[in-house]
Amino acid sequence: MSGHTPEEIHHHVKIYIRVFAALAALTVLTVGVSYIKLPVMAAILVALFIATIKSSLVAAFFMHLANEKKIIYWILLPAVAFFLVLLVLISYS
C-alpha cells in the first residue's frame, strides 16, 4: 500500500467510515440476537456467522487484504489451514 494518490486515500477513508458503521451495527445485532435466546446450536451459528462477517470486514479493508500481494495470502494460508485441521481433529475426538 505505497504510492497512493490523495484521491485514492480519500476514497479509502470513505470506505473506512462505512466499514466502521457496519461493524458497529453488527455488534448491536449480535448482542440483540443473544437476548432472543435461540436454541444453543442456532445461537452459536448466528454468533459465529456475524463474527465472521465482522472479522472479514476488518481483514479485507482495515488490513487491506482485499487488495494485497499474493505472497501474503500464501503466508496466511498454512496458518488458516492448520487451524481448520485443529477444528476437524476436535470434531473427531
Partner: peptide
C-alpha cells in the same frame, strides 16, 4: 509509513481476535 502500517496490521488483528472472543465468551 511502513512501520505504521505494520503496527496497524497488528492492532487490527488484536481487534479481530476480540470480535470472536466477545460472542464466544460473553454471548454463548
Amino acid at each position: 509509513m511502513g512501520r505504521i502500517e505494520a503496527a496497524g496490521l497488528y492492532w487490527h488483528f488484536v481487534d479481530l481476535v476480540w470480535i470472536f472472543l466477545f460472542p464466544v465468551l460473553y454471548l454463548l
